[in-house]
Design a protein around this nucleic acid. Sequence first.
DNA 1: GCTGGCACTCGGACCGGGGGAGTGCCAAAA
DNA 2: TTTTGGCACTCCCCCGGTCCGAGTGCCAGC
Lengths: 339, 339
Amino acid sequence: MLSERRLEVLRAIVQDYVGTEEPVGSKALTERHKLGVSPATVRNDMAVLEEEGYIAQPHTSAGRIPTDKGYRLFVDRLAGVKPLSTPERRAIHNFLDGAVDLDDVVGRTVRLLAQLTRQVAVVQYPSLTRSTVRHVELLALAPARLMLVLITDTGRVEQRVIDCPAPFGETSLADLRARLNSRVVGRRFADVPQLVQDLPESFEELEDRATVSTVLATLLETLVEEHEERLMIGGTANLTRFGHDFPLMIRPVLEALEEQVVLLKLLGEAKESGMTVRIGHENAHEGLSSTSVVSVGYGSGGEAVAKLGVVGPTRMDYPGTMGAVRAVARYVGQILAES
Amino acid sequence: MLSERRLEVLRAIVQDYVGTEEPVGSKALTERHKLGVSPATVRNDMAVLEEEGYIAQPHTSAGRIPTDKGYRLFVDRLAGVKPLSTPERRAIHNFLDGAVDLDDVVGRTVRLLAQLTRQVAVVQYPSLTRSTVRHVELLALAPARLMLVLITDTGRVEQRVIDCPAPFGETSLADLRARLNSRVVGRRFADVPQLVQDLPESFEELEDRATVSTVLATLLETLVEEHEERLMIGGTANLTRFGHDFPLMIRPVLEALEEQVVLLKLLGEAKESGMTVRIGHENAHEGLSSTSVVSVGYGSGGEAVAKLGVVGPTRMDYPGTMGAVRAVARYVGQILAES
DNA sequence: GCTGGCACTCGGACCGGGGGAGTGCCAAAA
DNA sequence: TTTTGGCACTCCCCCGGTCCGAGTGCCAGC
């Protein structure tokens, strides 16, 4: 167990390193922070902290920098979440209030987060499975070709073209549309499968049954399909603030960011409620082993329908970043609830 | 007017510089290319080329590198378009054939282009105004709230929520839907405005007229709206191959790439038909003054409905890049025509 | 107009020597 | 037992000097 003062030393090291981006030594520490002890004492504490794996030296006779484990302790026990300043809050409101549709909300949110945190922002679109159905529409594009359009309560729209096994009459289509809607409107997407499973049998014509089955299959496929978990990223230019060594650092990060799958998994691993901070090697993807991810769920009600967050160097301002992420998530939730 | 040999020297310089990324000197040139003259002669030619502004020296007593003007001449008169190899062609087909919908086509195209050229790829979604209407759908979300869904022949779908001035009956809605569709299906978006302008008057109820007007207004707005000119980019990780000095280079490029407006303007400035190459300072945006943009229109018929291209360092393999861009554009056009 | 030769320039790599920030350890003080 | 001041030591980083080589411009001769 680390003494109070040693924790204090760790906190000071993290803060200074985040500020200066340079290894911090015992003397500089005592000068910048009122620790009430001499550099020699701090040196002893540092030796202990290093022993325990919280800090490390880039090379002998250099200052110390925090390890992933050190940041972890800092985030868990030493750092609060810094509330935003009033101007910052106002900026959020001003910026997000002008949004006209869902795409716009997401787009603005990404830019806002990137600007506020000066890091890379990631915003997931409200997911299908946790939303509820506002409307299902079936359009005949051709005799044996339908388009399925799904509209969610969060304003998201999914469409899909369906090739039917047989032509489908206009009346049957209207019938199916009506029955579908009466069953699923207002229900959660997750519940849809069991609500529609008996639909094909209620049709008399054998051919129609086949078509109905096809339509339902596509509908269900659309619901579970993972690649439809879209997201938007922004602020990649902030990666250039990474450090001096960054050609080597930045490349794998950019590559990881282009793989939506990676990002979705990243967000998926985060806790359902509350803020999640994943530091350095805690991220499964190795390209992101020198970055930290701060993420949180957001949603229109009390429940999260999607997540958003930022990706930045492990050496980041955690309290500030967490504050910004949380504030933005809350306000986006409000915006969605209103629309 | 430059002699044949001097042009040959310029071509050699461009090729070598693109290959090695280092200033090229007279001796190295004569060794790598069969120019049939001595280094001294090449030096004289280089002096002339420099005088004319086609090449420059980073510092005295270093080799020469091409200027933007030099690249321009190279592209216009010295370089052809290098056709792709058979494996490359096959790769294009394999990769694009699996696409399931428009989003997928665009996404795959971006990745493909980025991989093929090892640069940043930009693909514009087929634009609304040049496409034709496949279907217009009106859905009642609430008594006085409609959703307008537009489906294009390229598979693109646009939706928009409309708040009506008054409730709108189901029969009126069906009526309007039918009339709208009968007028505009199969027509080009650009022609839609004049095709529907007299619609409101054909409705008897005054209230309905108001609603119809609102719907039409939204429809037309959707058609012209510029921010709906979406695009997708990819391969930003390739920016790290930029050069040694790249922290300074890469940042403004990333920033520019995040501004869709900038990119759209960039593509918009390109010629309607044929390939466009903009080199270095020829690009209006100053963040892109050390990059070149190779773009071309693509479309399902003979006509371009959108553009795609790549952004890379001015020091790029122009013939190869142009070949890849053209080949991909052609095949995407085919894919769109089939679907 | 081309060529070979020559003197010159300059950037980049390669030392070697301070200077400084930082460390570990130890003995003395609290 | 913990804290402190002192001290010797270790490296990194910066700086200046040297050397080397690729490249250039110029010129006289073919």
